[in-house]
Design a protein around this nucleic acid. Structure first.
Length: 464
DNA sequence: GCATGATCATGC
DNA sequence: GCATGATCATGC
């Protein structure tokens, strides 16, 4: 068990108040002022250890119990950053403990490794600034974090979702986007760090419980602006059945089958704005502000999309995503790519309006994140092909006599999941190319992005 | 009718 | 001015 050195330093801090005092005294200090002994330009985990040692006089350890065992408080040190628009975000997810697939499923939530170690977190936030020495990073905020009752309900359910996947022999198919606040993020030197799972012989990537980047961002926003979120969903929506999805579906169920004009009338909306379907949905939830500002949607990294289905059962258009930079894609590996990270972490909430007798009618809500195979087999193929085409300068196949450029990018018919198409204001709206295009000699090209095929949205997501 | 190239509309 | 979500235009 603990050696004598551990025991001694443990006794330096006896109460929560002493712990908070000690933490407060670290605010405004740079890493090198807290601990002069460590090299900071090396490994990532150093700040945690450095502060345990330099700030709390507590030797490094990797034990399963909380850092301040008697107080049951776990110390976390994590970065936040300033965005271009002046707001602040968490830089990373907050990694908690590694999941032992062979053991965790045997436990109840209350006895789980997650809950045993992490029910109270002392989180110290330092500001990450690009191009400055890591040793100059400064601790700016500290909080003693306990989960609110509502957050805890979601987190328990998230834990259960992860456990259910282990029990189904699908630990290798876990995605961070399966869950809402608590994620299972990959952890290890690289994607080949795997471990055994109990109900399948397939090795699963090593993963750790973590609080999603977006969950942490909401905490950072509250600290940096010193305000609570304007709109909190679960003040309006009763959490039922412990599930995020069920709660929202139950809330909007009374409106299913109502037409656009009925709903506009009901909510006293007099508008022809394109965003009127989103406005209607906002009112169904009882919210006033923008959906993108709802703290639960931010925390869970949920993106709401309204979809209109025509009376033929078809969706008119494919779904676009942010444009990629040609020069970035050629220097990335699949699992570092923006589109991989997007689909690996983002949960979509589709609000479906169906055209019936000539009028759009509220149909249902579909929660979705990209399944493992669709991402790591089909979408990966599209991405690899795209990277190769750009790297080889092979974008344009030929230019027809009207001047229209036909490309080699993977089209809608080449892959069941997605394709690559322009996403720009104009043809002249371009990003630089890493390799000169062989056919046209161009060094810049119109912005492009990855799309989800409309047929994929129809058949695989909405299951029309 | 669908696939693909190209562009629009809005908000910040 | 740009990112993002959405849609138009054309040819097969």
């Amino acid at each position: 068990m603990d050696d004598s050195k551990n025991k001694k330093s443990n006794q330096d801090i006896l109460t929560i108040d002493e712990l908070i005092d000690k933490a407060s005294s670290l605010l405004g200090l740079q890493m090198n002022q807290i601990n002069e002994n460590l090299e900071f330009d090396g490994k990532k985990g150093d700040f945690g250890f450095a502060i345990e040692e330099g700030g709390f006089n507590y030797p490094r350890n990797s034990r399963a119990e909380a850092d301040f065992k008697d107080l049951n408080v776990e110390l976390k040190v994590t970065p936040f950053k300033r965005n271009a628009n002046g707001t602040y975000s968490s830089k990373e997810r907050l990694v908690l403990n590694i999941i032992n697939y062979m053991e965790e499923y045997k436990k109840s939530f209350e006895d789980s490794s997650l809950w045993t170690k992490n029910q109270t977190l002392l989180i110290l936030f330092y500001e990450y600034i690009e191009n400055i020495s890591r040793s100059d990073f400064m601790i700016k905020y500290g909080i003693l974090h306990q989960f609110s009752e509502q957050d805890l309900i979601i987190i328990k359910n998230d834990w259960q979702i992860i456990i259910d996947k282990i029990k189904a022999g699908k630990a290798h198919e876990i995605s961070e986007a399966d869950t809402y606040y608590l994620g299972a993020c990959t952890k290890g030197k690289n994607s080949s760090s795997t471990r055994q799972q109990p109900f399948s012989s397939i090795p699963a990537k090593q993963r750790a419980f973590s609080l999603k980047t977006t969950y942490m961002t909401q905490i950072v926003r509250e600290l940096t602006t010193n305000t609570k979120p304007e709109d909190s969903l679960f003040n309006y929506v009763e959490l039922v059945g412990d599930s995020f999805e069920e709660s929202i579906i139950k809330k909007v169920a009374p409106y299913i089958g109502m037409t656009e004009s009925q709903l506009l009338g009901l909510f006293e909306l007099d508008t022809v704005a394109k965003s009127r379907f989103e406005m209607i949905f906002t009112r169904m939830l009882g919210l006033k502000g923008k959906l993108s500002k709802v703290s639960e949607f931010i925390k869970a990294n949920i993106q709401v999309k309204t979809i209109r289905v025509e009376d033929t059962g078809k969706i008119k258009e494919s779904m676009s995503f942010p444009a990629f930079k040609f020069t970035e894609i050629v220097n990335q590996e699949w699992e570092d790519s923006d589109i991989y990270k997007l689909f690996e972490t983002k949960k979509f909430m589709f609000v479906v309006f169906k055209k019936i007798n000539g009028e759009y009618t509220f149909d249902n809500i579909v929660f979705w994140n990209m399944p493992y195979e669709d991402l790591n087999v089909y979408f990966k193929t599209i991405w690899l092909e795209t990277r190769k085409i750009i790297a080889n300068g092979d974008i344009v196949k030929f230019v027809d006599n009207k001047g229209v450029r036909h490309t080699n990018f993977p089209g809608q018919s080449s892959n069941p999941v997605g394709h690559v198409r322009p996403h720009a204001r104009l043809k002249t709206d371009t990003y630089p190319l890493p390799s000169t295009d062989k056919v046209t000699g161009l060094n810049v090209y119109m912005k492009y992005c990855f799309w989800l095929n409309s047929k994929y949205v129809e058949e695989s997501i909405l299951k029309l």
